[in-house]
Nucleic acid binder design. Structure first.
Lengths: 338, 338
DNA sequence: TCAGAAAATGCAAACGTTTACACGAAAGCC
DNA sequence: GGCTTTCGTGTAAACGTTTGCATTTTCTGA
């Protein structure tokens, strides 16, 4: 299966009996050539199975038509869904997607950013805002446009396309408190290097403080985003005496794990303990009881990120941050305290 | 945020007072230049913040260090998980990943294949085997190595890294029959252009035939892979009189949708109706009752695909197909007929 | 010290595109 | 029918890199 040498613009031109310029124009600016020539060229292109050589094109136009994304992992419905929307929007604009994953490790993320930039991306989508200054410095020096997603902050310099994790988590916490809960626990994702996770913790703490409960004393267990993590964390929290009547989770997967564990311990949800999530993925709908959670518009976020990046590339805008709305998706897992 | 014009090899050469050839060699083959020149060059490179222009490099060396993947959608835990593993393995080898999605449309897939190839991929991962001859012809003509995943067939010419959908689905059907079910229905994915879906149907039919039941008469409803699709299809099947005692689904999402619908109709699972899935994703574990399903090693498949592609690129092997094992993951949703 | 070999460096030609400019033909104008 | 536009096409020069070959420098050993 040795690589055959691909047909070039020259081959097409020779075969069609025109110049390379005409072929190039027939493909890129069809309006500039007569219909008959264009047809001839396009037919020849098809016949030869010609595809433009990316290197040559990139070399002269200094446009790569490529956007990059570095995400913690695709192995998570949330990012996968956002990435899918990102890719679709890009694809509609004729731009292809380079993907790398960091595994929630910011120094690994830096490495991946360098690789992608070296590979010639016209822009980058990154997750969250927390990363070494080194990463930002590199991007600035190279003048690579980037958008930060899954987070939002008011900031003139940085381009956020996301939502306010703090506020969203706070809204859920307020709802929990309003239902009468006073003994509340939290299961968070690993907050190191993850501002989404820590913002959600901060939001819950602030809501507790505002209600006259002590945010500082909120019992928190951090775990990796997995069903098993949720189960373990939930077991730990439910051992406390007096037992919490509500457990706020930083993520739906953790929350569903928590529900499973609570039921395994013979507790009713929400009868004995209420549990809430964050993200609103399919799992939330399927879980029993249905998970009350914070709905995040993942697909819209991916689309908006792509559009923003394309607009910056085309010089249309400098950096319009986009703040997306979240809302509480109430199902059955949140009730009154026993 | 306008793109700063990046320093070139020329800039470095001029600044360091050497030729471009020397700079290139100092970077790519350090052994060929004296230590002192090398140091000088490297210092200058650092000083100027030079990074090689990918286009120029790709143009002359005709190596892109890039692999592509065209998958139906990332918005599906199955493909996302496999893709993640694929990417990780690639990344360890210093290769980056280009991603495009086809939305289960083979002609759109062809378009994406062309784009990715034009963008310079050294190899391609594709899903399943069913696509227009045109797509294969294009890949052959261009001599691009590719592996087909999520499917397996004995074939000298084509490189499969996957599993036998027919056999796997047949095994589940046999198990269902063995439990005593005689009135069986099936919910399949859309089989058009999707050999995984149609192979699974064929596997179930064959198992029925082998058991002396008529595979031809198996009631089948095709639906898109979604909870809603599963619900709709299940509603249709359960309207039949006499009612099926078991519903075999082509996918876990469909199966969980079916469970939801069955319960909504007031039926017990598996008391009144048994339901089985395919894939073994998180959802299967969380559903209530736990879903009996076919376990597919998605991550191992992604890794194997990457390794195979890298080996072919390096000329180590021509095409070693890899057949992966599936097994039945039995939980509670499959029982005896009422 | 010097010839010859070996090592280091430079020169310049690709690689496949796009695009400014030039050129000729057809079309529009009076 | 001569004039200017307009339109379609071709010519050739970039773009930034690698690399075969030529050239220069350094090293080796008698």
């Amino acid at each position: 299966m040795n690589r055959k040498s691909a047909p070039t613009l020259h081959d097409v031109a020779r075969q069609a009996g025109v110049s390379t310029a005409t072929v190039s124009r027939a493909l890129n600016a069809p309006g500039l050539v007569t219909a008959s020539t264009r047809d001839l060229v396009l037919r020849t292109v098809d016949e030869l199975g010609y595809t433009p050589h990316f290197g040559g094109r990139a070399l002269v136009s200094n446009r790569f038509n490529t956007m990059g994304a570095v995400i913690p992992t695709m192995d998570n419905a949330i990012f996968a869904r956002g990435l899918q929307a990102f890719q679709e929007t890009l694809s509609d604009a004729g731009v292809t997607l380079l993907v790398a994953s960091s595994g929630y490790d910011t120094s690994r993320e830096f490495e991946q950013i360098r690789t992608l930039v070296g590979r010639g991306t016209d822009g980058l989508m990154l997750i969250g805002a927390e990363r070494p200054a080194e990463s930002y410095a590199f991007l600035e020096r190279r003048g690579i446009p980037y958008v930060l997603t899954w987070s939002y902050r008011h900031d003139e310099k940085t381009c956020f396309v996301g939502f306010d994790n703090r506020r969203a988590a706070g809204a859920m916490a307020r709802e929990v408190i309003e239902r009468g809960h006073r003994r509340i626990g939290m299961i968070a994702g690993i907050t190191t290097g993850n501002d989404r996770a820590s913002d959600r913790v901060a939001g819950v703490r602030a809501a507790l403080d505002a209600a006259g409960l002590s945010g500082r004393d909120l019992p928190i267990v951090e775990e990796t985003y997995s069903l098993g993590g949720g189960r373990r964390a939930c077991a730990t929290l439910l051992e406390r005496r007096p037992r919490p009547t509500a457990v706020i989770c930083g993520n739906d997967v953790l929350a569903v794990g928590a529900i499973i564990q609570a039921k395994a311990l013979g507790l009713r949800v929400p009868g004995d303990v209420s549990i809430t999530g964050f993200d609103d993925i399919e799992l939330a709908e399927v879980a029993e009881p249905g998970l009350s959670t914070v709905h995040v518009p993942h697909r819209r976020m991916g689309q908006a990120a792509a559009r923003t990046l394309l607009a910056i590339r085309d010089g249309i805008t400098d950096c319009t941050g986009v703040e997306l709305e979240t809302y509480l998706a109430m199902r059955e897992s949140l009730g009154e305290p026993p």
